[in-house]
Computed example of a mutant assay.
Amino acid sequence: MSNLEVLKIIVVSALVTVALRLLPLFVKIPKNPILNKFFEALPYSVLVLMVFPDIFTSGGTSTYDVVKILIGMAIVAFLSLKKYGLGIIVTISLIMIFLFDLAKIYLG
């Protein structure tokens, strides 16, 4: 894949994400809170659908890599449920992945 194709993919993804984030500002159905909640959650759903499948293939395909990824996902879910900030969640999950990689180098 060339750099131009990658740039096109990034630009289109950014435009779609921004458009979906702005959609709830312009589309309000006054007497239907269920649809309003749907439009508010739509941008986050799209981001999850774009990122989630790549989580499983980005770290590798060995059993060790899949276990590392599943543990990382569990840590992110736990910290999210405890209402930690995004910066702390990302930092802790990156440190965890780094420690798993160090363990793999020294133990493997």
Rank of each mutant, 00 (worst) to 15 (best):
M96K: 05
L4P: 00
P33V: 07
I105M: 02
F38E: 01
K28D: 13
D65H: 04
G72I: 05
S2K: 06
M73E: 08
G87W: 03
K31V: 00
F39H: 04
A19Y: 01
N36H: 11
K82G: 06
S80K: 06
D54C: 06
P24G: 11
V76D: 00
L49K: 01
S45G: 14
Y44D: 15
K83Y: 11
F26A: 12
F100N: 02
I89W: 04
V67Q: 05
P33Y: 02
M1H: 08
A77H: 06
L49V: 08
V12K: 04
P30D: 12
I10L: 08
L79H: 04
T17H: 01
A19T: 12
I89T: 07
F78M: 14
F52V: 01
D65F: 04
G60N: 06
A14H: 05
L20T: 11
L42K: 07
V90M: 09
V90Q: 06
L86K: 02
P43K: 09
T61W: 07
K28I: 14
I89G: 02
I34N: 00
K83N: 14
K104C: 04
L23T: 00
V76A: 15
L99M: 11
A74Y: 13
G59A: 11
F100T: 07
D101Y: 03
N32K: 02
G59L: 07
V51G: 03
T57C: 03
L79M: 15
F39Q: 05
A19Q: 06
M1L: 09
Y44W: 13
L23M: 12
L79W: 11
K28V: 15
T17E: 01
Y64A: 05
L81C: 11
Y44A: 15
M50V: 12
A77G: 09
D54R: 10
A14F: 12
G85Y: 00
S62T: 03
V6F: 08
K83L: 12
S93T: 12
I97Q: 05
I29K: 00
A77Y: 08
S45V: 12
A14M: 08
A41G: 11
L4A: 15
V48R: 04
V16S: 09
I75H: 08
E40V: 02
G85C: 05
I75N: 07
L4G: 08
S45Y: 13
K28G: 05
F39P: 10
D65T: 08
A103T: 15
I9C: 09
L25G: 05
L7H: 08
F98A: 14
A77S: 10
T17K: 03
T17P: 04
V51R: 00
Y106E: 07
V11W: 11
S62R: 02
V18G: 08
K8D: 13
P53I: 01
F78D: 09
V12W: 10
Y84Q: 11
A14T: 00
F56T: 00
I9K: 14
E5G: 03
K104N: 06
K28W: 11
L7A: 14
A74N: 08
T17I: 04
K8R: 15
K82T: 13
S93E: 13
V76E: 03
N3T: 07
M96A: 14
P43Y: 12
F26V: 00
T57Q: 06
G85N: 13
